[in-house]
Simulated assay, not measured.
Amino acid sequence: MEEATLMGSLIGELEAREAAARVRVEELEVQVAELTARLEGEREVLARLRVTRETVAEVLTELSVQDVEAGPVERVESGVRVVGAVMVPHWREGLSVDVLPDVYRDIVEVVADASSPMQAKQIVPRIGLPAVTGKIEGTRGKLKRLVERGWLVEDQPGRFAPAPRDR
């Protein structure tokens, strides 16, 4: 008899454990379903952002090509801030550094405050970037764009100064 009671309580214990395991499995399945739905939503956001970024890059490339083919295109008026695409307008009378994107404005202001022409490696730490090769080269590219657009001059290779404004 004792053996039958022991078997009965063992079976009962196993059934209780099985029921508890079933509850845990069901809870995990609900969590998996919720996470799967969230994952799909985030994948959709990622795909939309990727397409948007690629489209913007294509448009900017096309605009760049049009600027080169058609010459300077004035897109920014005095006092208007451009948010989004980084655009450096050609300098003209009455245009202030306020129309430039932040990093370009910082570069022009640092160069304007200097007592002599500056190199990219001198400018980088003054605009709050680490003086590493990538940041120096990126800043050099921005300096060249500012020269092309009439904001700065490069009197000697690699040395930048404010463009004279007596023209």
Rank of each mutant, 00 (worst) to 15 (best):
L35Y: 07
P162V: 00
R149S: 02
T55Q: 12
P101E: 10
E18A: 11
R53W: 05
V65Q: 12
V108D: 08
K135M: 06
T139W: 03
R159D: 00
E27W: 02
G134R: 10
G12K: 14
L39H: 11
V110Y: 06
V32M: 13
V147P: 05
R75N: 03
E42H: 14
E154L: 03
T61R: 14
K142W: 08
E58D: 12
R167H: 06
P162I: 00
T36K: 14
A20G: 07
V76S: 06
D155S: 08
P89Q: 10
Q66A: 14
R50F: 01
V30Y: 08
E58W: 07
Q122L: 01
R38F: 04
A57D: 10
E137I: 10
E44R: 15
A33P: 00
A120N: 11
M7I: 11
A114Q: 10
R43D: 08
D113N: 07
I136R: 04
E3K: 00
E137D: 08
V153N: 01
L100G: 09
E26P: 01
A114M: 04
R53F: 05
E74W: 03
E154N: 05
L129P: 00
L49E: 13
V76C: 07
R145G: 00
P101H: 09
R145N: 06
A114T: 06
A33I: 02
I11V: 15
E74S: 05
K135E: 04
V103S: 08
G8T: 04
S9C: 02
E27V: 06
A57R: 15
V80Q: 15
V25E: 13
E77M: 12
V68C: 03
A47R: 15
M87F: 11
D102M: 07
L152I: 05
A47C: 06
E69A: 12
M7N: 09
P72M: 02
Y104A: 14
V45R: 15
D106H: 09
V132R: 13
A70I: 02
G12L: 11
V80N: 05
T36D: 14
V76R: 13
I107G: 05
A112K: 04
K142M: 12
V86H: 12
L49N: 14
V73L: 14
A85H: 11
E42K: 15
T133K: 12
W151Y: 11
Q122E: 15
D98Q: 10
A47Q: 15
V124A: 13
K135Y: 01
V88A: 09
I127T: 08
T61G: 15
A19N: 11
E15F: 02
E109Q: 14
L39D: 04
A131Y: 04
G79C: 11
T133P: 00
E27S: 10
P164L: 02
A20Y: 09
A163K: 04
A33Y: 07
L14W: 13
S96G: 15
E148S: 13
E69F: 10
V83D: 13
E40A: 12
R92L: 03
T55F: 07
A19I: 04
E34C: 01
E58K: 10
L100W: 05
K144E: 09
E93P: 00
R75P: 00
E69R: 14
A131L: 09
V99C: 11
A70T: 05
G84R: 10
T55Y: 08
K135L: 01
Q31R: 15
